[in-house]
Design a protein around this nucleic acid. Structure first.
Lengths: 231, 231
DNA sequence: CGTAGCCTTGAAGGTGATCAATGTTTGTGG
DNA sequence: CCACAAACATTGATCACCTTCAAGGCTACG
């Protein structure tokens, strides 16, 4: 836990969440906030924890997990830079508990904002509420997209997942993923067995749809070819 | 299309969405609003329509559909009394289009509120934004629950769906569903084949888990027995 | 250097999809 | 009032996709 550096605040001010928000308002919205650095696989919060603060991802990525009855973990969302975790919960009654766990993917840095700050400054600011709406809208759209594809073959569902995580900044026909996803994580996100993901990805690889510069780096996607799986 | 009756306004004022909202604020929030009566299976809006207004369900129920690539429709949500449809979209850029279709289940009545009213009165009211958040939170929780159960056997997923739609007002051990769901709708909601739902429900019936007073009325659930399928 | 987490491959098995045929109910139009 | 279409329900047979299980390999890390 550490205080926010001036550099961090600049970075935060550039997030879409705070677009058009004056500097002093931003400062209020971050009162009592601290920065937490998470190691690979470290938990940010666990399902059942008292929700005393919520989070903004500064750097890196965090996966949101829910326990399935079988004991496996299902990934409901990959939170990346600028994403907000647990804000919806702040509105609910006091003593609310997280319904999800959050686990860091690689090293990441996260801003922790206390619940009281949400109630005093976030909840009372219509601009911020609207921006939160936009974030939620996108997350809701994604999860609905997934649901729409439930009955599609695994190839299609994986292709869809990969497309969603493309690094939109590059312009080349071959784009890489914004985050490094393991086969296990893809499986957990789609609710299927790892082995099935591995076999499908192998096929993609043989077809030249995906490739990797080296082990450990994110997958590189040939978008044209990938799209043929979806149509 | 008709104007709101005094009776309708009373009913709306009792929705959770407007809890603690003063009468004149409510009136502003409904400026330009009209009531639409929908026949069974009539569309309220179709995917791709210009989102010029959003909706509040007054009576009856409306299902929200998304087209899957195969041409089937997946049900992403059952909207009942007090539910809001399309509000998230109002925040987004002008000329936004509905990503979903809405189709009435039986006869229903819906309040149509113009986008301009949202921007003038809903968006600027922090109380209403918070209430919208709560509604969304619940919808998000539901869809995440569904996702968590993706890899569970069909029995469990159907049991979960039934539990969610119990009529909470009754106290008896046997509760009925709030809305009449056809097997087809259950299948569309879970993204499985109708035949699979029929076979599972038949089994439930033989086990005495569900029963129907008569055809056409909602299913009656023996909760104790149903819960044994989930644990 | 041993453990933990992830990846890989093969073989066997099951759940649910698909296809086909038929029945029931409701609403529509002649 | 009857004929017909549309939407939903049902049942059985067959089959594919994905799961499960088992075994082994690789890399990172304490």
């Amino acid at each position: 836990m550490a205080l926010l550096s001036a550099n961090d605040i600049v970075k935060i001010s550039e997030f879409e969440l705070f677009r058009g928000i004056p500097g002093n308002t931003l400062k209020s919205c971050l009162s009592g906030a601290s920065v937490r650095t998470l190691k690979h696989r470290e938990f940010l919060c666990q399902a059942g924890d008292l929700a005393e603060s919520f989070y903004i991802v500064l750097e890196g990525a965090v996966k949101l997990l829910r326990h399935s009855p079988k004991g496996e973990d299902i990934i409901v969302h990959f939170a990346v830079q600028g994403d907000v975790i647990g804000a919806l919960l702040m509105n609910e009654n006091k003593n609310g508990r997280f319904p999800i766990s959050s686990k860091s993917m690689g090293v990441s840095r996260v801003v922790c904002v206390p619940r009281s700050t949400f109630l005093s400054y976030w909840k009372e600011n219509v601009q911020i509420q609207s921006q939160l709406h936009s974030l939620l809208y996108r997350r809701m759209s994604n999860i609905q997209d997934d649901k729409t594809l439930i009955s599609s073959p695994l190839k299609v569902r994986i292709a869809n997942l990969l497309l969603r995580h493309l690094d939109q900044t590059a312009e080349t026909p071959n784009q890489s993923l914004m985050i490094t996803l393991t086969r296990q994580e893809i499986a957990d996100s789609l609710g299927v067995a790892v082995e099935s993901v591995i076999r499908t990805m192998k096929e993609f690889h043989l077809d030249g749809v995906i490739s990797r510069a080296d082990e450990k780096s994110p997958e590189i996607i040939n978008i044209q070819k990938l799209l043929t799986y979806i149509e």
